[in-house]
Design a protein around this nucleic acid. Sequence first.
DNA 1: CGTAGGTTTGAGGTTGGTCAACAGGTGTGG
DNA 2: CCACACCTGTTGACCAACCTCAAACCTACG
Lengths: 239, 239
Amino acid sequence: MIDLLVLNLGSRDTLAAEEIALLEQIIKHERLVLRGHDIVSEGSRPHESTLLLEGIAARYRVLEDGKRQITALHVAGDFIDLHAFMLKTLDHSVVALSPCKVATAAHRDLVSVTKTHPHLSRMLWLSTVIDGAIHREWIVAMGRRSKKSHLAHLICELYVRLNVVGLVQEAGFQLDLSQSEVADTLGVSLVHLNKTLQSLRSDGLVRWTNRVVTILDWDRLVHVAEFDDTYLNLRREPR
Amino acid sequence: MIDLLVLNLGSRDTLAAEEIALLEQIIKHERLVLRGHDIVSEGSRPHESTLLLEGIAARYRVLEDGKRQITALHVAGDFIDLHAFMLKTLDHSVVALSPCKVATAAHRDLVSVTKTHPHLSRMLWLSTVIDGAIHREWIVAMGRRSKKSHLAHLICELYVRLNVVGLVQEAGFQLDLSQSEVADTLGVSLVHLNKTLQSLRSDGLVRWTNRVVTILDWDRLVHVAEFDDTYLNLRREPR
DNA sequence: CGTAGGTTTGAGGTTGGTCAACAGGTGTGG
DNA sequence: CCACACCTGTTGACCAACCTCAAACCTACG
């Protein structure tokens, strides 16, 4: 069940068999969430953290005027609200963008992990800290990149993150986001997102149809995006 | 020396005397960094994490075309690169925006904290996770707020954060940022930032001269910013 | 066959960027 | 003491990026 989480953490440091067994043990209550439904809700005070087993989900906030901003995308193998283990109150909702299979780890159990398994705790800590690194990269993209470069950057990031958990075939991957959802991710209007995407397409960089993204020219895409995957911390080293 | 860190963490949960003593013990090598100098540098692999004792600092990235984006502001009492304890390689530089007094905690010592003091580790974990919450709030602001609202939001946030560590007098605080640095924080041009600031001033919301910010009408400022301090997690509760 | 969700396109307006100039304050060297 | 450079803040003119509104089109599905 937790194979993708193991791939995820395991690509940053080696996990001991015992640590994997422990994770296996505390992650329970598998359930399905339909597309469009919230997996967790802003303002709630959950007593467990949710792991995404399958599908893609978005953390978002809706402002008073109805505008929505997506602050994070989570793919299979990501803990989507592990930080709530420390924060107690959720500051954003997370919605399923595709049908999602999820499971949870009780905060009580996570506390005992911190007491008995320091290395595993650090790995969990690491995963929240990588989320932070991704946030910073998004801030840079939102503030100082052109929309075209920003979109290219997002595609590069998703390609790499999905590749870690084995969800890339050849140069393509399934991406269950409507253009409107991508627009809410980049913080632009739907109309402008569409035109930006057309521009990437007409440059021959990507194909993006029927929710399948194919990268046609990785090198040029990386160049347009000024993409550097350092922030994803994909080196296996002692943490 | 670590009084402000104690105020910072202590406003989220009660710290035991022993935990404070331990922090006191592992945080060493106080030094001064001049305004404009990097405290830590992108790409480096430090063996210690840096605590900001006095002053204000900015995490930033410079893109190929020379544009700079500030991804985080750190005030006295903040650990500025505690996440590097897990990430190993720094993904951004941090520059002193005022003369800064800093000290460091060796990663070796932090590892042993995770082995012997689970609650204190969770508090440190918490502090990295609050950084993440702030990042998310900034993403929302960059993506979906007007620049005026974004600037108002930044002022509200800094007011609250500085208040935690006792650096607010009446409704005012010292803020050693040039307008150009604020512009790099919001991701706008200097010219536009200046006009946005004028607009807040002429609305009678803030006074901002000589690097001193005074809030003239907190309620209206909060309203313009749609500010809600939940994400700063200022409730003292068991974590 | 009608409806709903998603994509695409165009027109026109607003926000925010760039360039350029000037003002005020500060520190330095002559 | 003055002249000068330099840094920061301020303002105006002009232009590009991006938004909103609106409509058309496409596909899937009951």
